[in-house]
Amino acid sequence: MLVLLDQTRLPAEEVELVCTDVPALVEAIRSLAVRGAPLLGIAGAYGVALAAVRGFDVAEAAELLAHARRRR
């Protein structure tokens, strides 16, 4: 599980966003709840680790996260 500060709610509120899998993290990145190059890198690394710990395909997780910011 990865708990992030939802940056779309700042500065009015501090809301935690809980991502329990890579698709949830990808959606958080696409919705701009996670933004900024340093945080994107850290979130991506944790996302790959999360996939590994939960027994998912690490290469597929890395690919999804690497392309999360691109247009659909």
Rank of each mutant, 00 (worst) to 15 (best):
M1Q: 06
L4C: 05
Q7E: 15
T8A: 15
T8Q: 15
R9E: 14
R9K: 15
R9W: 12
L10P: 11
P11M: 00
P11K: 00
A12W: 09
A12D: 14
E13V: 07
E13M: 10
E14Q: 15
E14K: 11
V15A: 08
E16P: 14
L17C: 07
V18M: 06
C19W: 00
C19F: 02
T20V: 02
T20W: 04
D21A: 01
D21N: 03
D21E: 04
V22F: 05
P23Y: 02
P23W: 02
L25P: 09
L25M: 03
A28E: 04
I29P: 13
I29C: 14
I29E: 13
I29W: 06
R30V: 04
S31G: 10
L32W: 09
L32K: 15
L32F: 13
A33F: 08
A33D: 11
A33I: 03
A33K: 10
R35A: 14
A37R: 05
P38W: 01
L40S: 12
L40D: 14
L40R: 00
L40W: 03
G41T: 00
A43R: 01
A43W: 01
Y46H: 14
Y46P: 10
A49M: 06
A49Y: 05
A49H: 08
L50Y: 06
A51F: 02
A52F: 01
A52Y: 06
R54P: 14
R54D: 14
G55V: 02
F56G: 13
D57K: 03
V58M: 08
V58N: 11
V58K: 06
A59M: 08
A59R: 07
E60P: 10
E60A: 15
E60D: 13
E60M: 07
A61W: 01
A61E: 06
A61S: 06
E63T: 07
L64C: 03
L65P: 14
A66R: 06
H67R: 10
H67E: 12
H67Q: 09
A68F: 01
A68E: 01
R70V: 05
R71S: 08
R71D: 07
R72I: 13
R72K: 10
R72D: 10
R72N: 08
R72F: 07
